[in-house]
Design a protein around this nucleic acid. Structure first.
Length: 561
RNA sequence: GGGGCGUUAGCUCAACAGGAUAGAGCAACGGCCUUCUAAGCCGUCGGUUAGGGGUUCGAGUCCCUUACGUCCCGCCA
């Protein structure tokens, strides 16, 4: 609503003063006004004083908006405008009440398909906190794109192919024991992998063996394939256990191995288009501003990018996407850039649809987590810790709560999810368990708690009435909530445009904060019927938006905690 | 050595397209529960936005430069 008024104002100014670029914004401090227009440029270009500009603009706006605007004043070069809070507030509350959880639903993705490649852990390695970001961000983006009307294809591009399996096979043959591995598959496999990497540093022969083993695997060696399959099955068990806990799901689990029989076609096409260059025993594609992309090793085996190219063409053919998102860490920026560049060089225009949703690495002791070096934190342990702590909170604060375990699980897991989403920034983050287990302040439990508080009020109300006291909306703690509710659709649009769930996360925090302030200042269930209706209606609208927002982020909404 | 990303309060981070007095949370300290869930609310403390130049009515934001951190740089993924 306010956004609409802003765009109307901008259009009016644009028409009246085509020689300036109109700026219409909202003051940081709400007490200054609802909308403000800096008029520095206007005054300067026309060489007239501020107050003259202000009078002109005021006449223009009054004529157009009539009773929708209540006050216009000049403050230090800004024209500050107050909107009619009663009109705006009732309009917004009615809209949310009418649309319910469809409030904010957009149609910008109608008839469009987006493929999202996320999580994509490596087989035979534990699911670490390092995988969390891709998993959580990708899942949230999937929900958000659906909210915008897109058809979403969620793909888990498992790292189930490559030289590492040569290493693992050799390591297993040298030191492996099936009985031991069956006891604790992932950990035992990691032990083998770490041992191999340590010894490999001083023993080039091992590297050769691993390479040979991978070549055999790629050529279809039965025994090796059997081992590979076993490793993969064991890994998937752990991964799926994590996904179930996180509430994350996929349309397809298609790992790199799925594309092994689709690579030759890509390589042939590159040859036909004369893009493949023989260099130092290997085949590469030369790129303009980037280092060459290595497509085929000198022993004839494939590489990550070879398989990724095959996967990309398969996806284009199968899903005919308008957009494809790779939710992968910063470290792979070059890889994605090369992928795009090769596609462009091949003459396809959909290279433009490829987007790298990059994020900072999770560091430990200031360094990248590395399975090879055994420097890793398992996600499962972190989730267990979080849920345990949630349980302690419940025992202290609400010991009579039924199904404590269930609630603790939802609070703990959501806390970890939200912690990862609220600060999506490009820069790296140091792994900090203490911070992840923070349940007070700007956290997941804070959002859930706010929803629960509203819920316990709504439980005492028979039905929602829309006959309210409009004048209450002039109070700042009422209107602040309204103002934020109003921004939900725009926030969703921005979140999707930027592919950044932290935008929605921060929004939800501001919504919860504004409501909690309101809650502390105002008794909701007062005897006066009309005032009670007003408070209840507002509270319910907050819950609708808050719950929908949490759902989109992949968090759990709970009734009681 | 080359390239990318980053640097804002003690810590973790915000700041719409360049706008007003740079905001939150955590930590520390002090208030607020016989009243709808105190996982909450209110207050105090905390800043040369890494350093230096430039662009302009106005710069955390744009340009140049230095420092520091991190990631990547053909036969790993």
């Amino acid at each position: 609503m306010i956004e609409y008024i802003k765009s109307e104002i901008a259009a009016l100014l644009n028409k009246q003063y085509p020689f300036i670029t109109p700026i219409v914004e909202e003051p940081k401090d709400a007490s200054l006004g609802d909308i403000s227009i800096p008029i520095f440029e206007l005054a300067k270009k026309r060489n007239v004083p501020f107050d003259e500009c202000k009078s002109e603009v005021e006449t223009l706006l009054r004529a157009h908006f009539k009773e929708l605007i209540t006050d216009i004043r000049l403050v230090r070069g800004f024209i500050n405008i107050d909107v009619n809070k009663e009109l705006v507030a009732s309009h917004i509350l009615m809209e949310i009440t009418k649309l319910d959880n469809n409030y904010g639903t957009l149609s910008i993705g109608k008839d469009k398909t987006v493929v999202i490649d996320y999580s994509s852990p490596n087989i035979a390695k534990p699911f670490s906190v390092g995988h969390l970001r891709s998993t959580i961000i990708g899942h949230a983006l999937g929900n958000l794109y659906e909210k915008c009307g897109y058809k979403v294809v969620r793909i888990n591009h498992l790292g189930d192919w490559g030289t590492q399996f040569g290493k693992l096979i050799v390591a297993y043959q040298l030191w492996g024991d099936k009985n031991v591995i069956d006891q604790d598959p992932i950990n035992e496999l990691v032990k083998l992998y770490v041992k191999f990497n340590e010894l490999e540093e001083h023993d080039p022969e091992l590297t050769e063996k691993a390479r040979h083993a991978f070549k055999e695997l790629e050529n279809g060696n039965e025994a090796y394939l059997k081992l590979w399959k076993w490793f993969k099955e064991e890994s998937l068990k752990e991964f799926i256990r994590m996904y179930d806990r996180l509430g994350v799901y996929f349309d397809y689990y298609l790992g790199e191995s799925f594309y092994t029989d689709k690579m030759d076609a890509v390589i042939k096409e590159l040859e036909d288009k004369e893009l493949l260059v023989f260099d130092d025993g290997a085949y590469v594609v030369l790129l303009n501003d980037l280092v060459p992309a290595l497509i085929k090793k000198s022993d004839g085996t494939s590489l990550y990018i070879t398989r990724d190219l095959a996967a990309l063409f398969y996806r284009k053919k199968t899903y005919d996407f308008n957009k494809i998102l790779y939710v992968i860490g910063n470290e792979q920026a070059l890889h994605i850039a090369q992928l795009k560049a090769v596609v462009k060089k091949m003459g396809y225009d959909f290279y433009d649809a490829i987007e790298h949703i990059n994020f900072g690495l999770v560091l430990q002791d200031g360094k990248k987590m590395s399975t090879r070096k055994g420097r890793i934190v398992r996600l499962e342990e972190v989730l267990d810790e979080a849920c345990l702590l949630a349980k302690t909170y419940i025992e202290n604060k609400n010991p009579n709560l039924p199904n404590k375990e269930e609630v603790a699980e939802k609070v703990g897991v959501s806390a970890i999810i939200f912690n990862d989403l609220k600060n999506h920034r490009v820069h790296n983050i140091e792994f900090d368990l203490e911070k992840m287990l923070q349940f007070e302040g700007e956290t997941g439990p804070y959002l859930q708690y706010t929803s629960v508080r509203i819920n316990s009020i709504l439980k005492q109300v028979a039905s929602i009435h829309i006959n309210v006291v409009n004048s209450l909306f002039n109070k700042s703690h009422y209107f602040e909530v309204i103002r934020i509710l109003d921004k939900f659709p725009l926030t969703l649009e921005k979140t999707v445009k930027e592919n950044d769930p932290s935008i929605l996360s921060k929004y939800l925090l501001s919504l919860a904060t504004s409501f909690n302030k309101f809650y502390s200042l105002e008794k909701i269930l007062v005897p006066d019927e009309l005032i009670r209706n007003t408070n209840v209606l507002l509270s319910r609208c907050v819950k609708v938006v808050l719950d929908e927002g949490m759902r989109l982020l992949g968090m759990q909404v709970i009734d009681e905690m």
